[in-house]
């Protein structure tokens, strides 16, 4: 078990290092250069730009730049943002928790919703309900996240006024709220972005869970459970679901990249101050150090997702646990 964990960890470290290296190369090889200002208001004269290149060391040969970056990284330094004039670590320290809150909520919600739909479908597979839900999840699965987000925003935010449309908190009211009130406020702001991210993935989980469940319903032990006189509910939830959970949990672990990619869009739509936004802005402004660091964090999150899925699978399935 320890050796297994060590091997997994070593693999994770190597792949994250590879991600960083490739990102660094791509970012520097891509055309364009760090920008001062916005497209509407590009302020810098060519002279200012040239001086900036020197200040950031961007006029040095690429291998030298990479070596310096790697040396700093090894010391735990992520460098400085060219645009924001602050340490990249500070930028990430603010953004990552927000993304974890959004992505984590969306992941858990989509998993629960996906499981629920999958179970309902499997419970009456080949019924009309099943067919309808299959069609619904297929449609949902093919909906672009961006579009879904905008629709939710227009309907539940602008039209119905049920939920706030942007940000993490109600501007100008924070200091009047108790800490519980603040938590509720954040939760209300979380609903729409999390739903936009979660619904599409819930459809994926549902489809996956349904087929895994239908397959596991064919197992002899399901028949044995029925032969004991258990209710359908117990058969489904206790016997079938438990065994059919592992593939979905693995998928959930593998879906971390989806949530990261989706958060770029959803955070933009809903003004959620997270990693996706940071990455988006950084790519646009060619803020090299920030781009590379977001790739690093994403790599770590993806690896952590896989690791977590392994643990969850081991908890759900003793065969996995005891084999290692």
């Amino acid at each position: 078990m320890l050796r297994f964990a060590a091997r997994r960890l070593a693999f994770a470290v190597v792949s994250v290092a590879a991600v960083v290296f490739i990102t660094f190369l791509l970012v520097h090889a891509a055309p364009g250069e760090p920008m001062l200002g916005t497209p509407e208001r590009a302020l810098a004269s060519p002279e200012t730009m040239a001086r900036q290149r020197t200040l950031f060391g961007l006029d040095r040969p690429l291998p030298e730049q990479f070596l310096r970056y790697a040396r700093n990284l090894a010391r735990g330094e992520l460098g400085e943002s060219f645009v924001l004039h602050r340490p990249v670590a500070a930028v990430l320290a603010e953004a990552v928790p927000n993304t974890l809150l959004l992505g984590g909520t969306a992941l858990v919600a989509s998993l629960l919703l996906g499981l629920a739909i999958g179970v309902v479908q499997a419970a009456r597979h080949h019924s009309r309900t099943d067919t309808l839900l299959s069609a619904a999840t297929l449609v949902l699965y093919s909906v672009p996240v961006f579009w879904l987000g905008l629709v939710l925003l227009l309907v539940f935010g602008e039209r119905l006024h049920w939920l706030p449309v942007s940000g993490m908190t109600s501007a100008g009211l924070e200091d009047r709220l108790s800490s519980l009130g603040r938590a509720v406020d954040v939760a209300r702001h979380l609903v729409l972005p999390a739903a936009s991210l979660a619904l599409v993935q819930a459809a994926a989980f549902a489809r996956f869970q349904r087929s895994a469940l239908v397959e596991s319903l064919d197992a002899e032990y399901i028949r044995a459970a029925r032969a004991k006189g258990l209710t359908e509910r117990a058969v489904l939830l206790k016997h079938a679901l438990r065994g059919a959970l592992a593939p979905t949990l693995t998928l959930a672990g593998l879906s971390v990249p989806y949530f990261l990619a989706g958060s770029v869009l959803v955070e933009s739509i809903f003004g959620w101050p997270g990693l996706g936004r940071v990455a988006y802005d950084a790519i646009f402004a060619r803020d090299y150090n920030v781009i590379t660091a977001t790739a690093l964090v994403s790599g770590v999150l993806v690896a952590a997702g896989n690791l977590l899925a392994d643990v969850a699978v081991a908890i759900a399935d003793p065969r996995v646990r005891l084999d290692q």
Partner: peptide, 23 residues
């Protein structure tokens, strides 16, 4: 008394917030 800037990257959302009275 107070000026608060809210970052809302998506223009359509910003307008929605304005129409909804959030901004």
């Amino acid at each position: 008394d107070r000026l608060i800037w809210r970052v809302t990257p998506e223009l359509a959302t910003a307008v929605s917030g304005l129409l909804a009275g959030e901004a």
